[in-house]
């Protein structure tokens, strides 16, 4: 609704994973944050990591390095 920008949204299989990745991005000084999964992605009740597109590559790398599987990456206006 307000101030929409193209964002990277990453969803996880579990809430624990989402929170783990939030810690990882913080440790690595990557600007990203946990938000409730936007309803246009899923009607579920999980958490997603939200960042600007420019941080996406770094986050993907971090997730791969830490062997977190089952993630989904979306680019949406949010």
């Amino acid at each position: 609704m307000k101030n929409q920008e193209l964002k990277t949204i990453i969803t996880f299989e579990t809430t624990q994973q989402a929170m783990e990745v939030e810690d990882l991005v913080k440790e690595n000084n990557i600007k990203a944050r946990l938000i409730p999964v936007p309803s246009n992605i899923s009607a579920g009740c999980g958490l997603a990591l939200c960042s600007s597109i420019s941080e996406q590559e770094k986050i993907e790398l971090l997730i791969k390095k830490n062997e977190i599987s089952g993630i989904k990456i979306y680019n949406i206006f949010y």
Binding site: T15, M19, E22, R33, L34, I35, P36, L47
Partner: peptide, 13 residues
């Protein structure tokens, strides 16, 4: 930790 995360999510929402 979950409680803090939920509250952040709530305020964002």
């Amino acid at each position: 930790k979950l409680g803090k995360t939920l509250l952040k999510s709530f305020i964002f929402s």
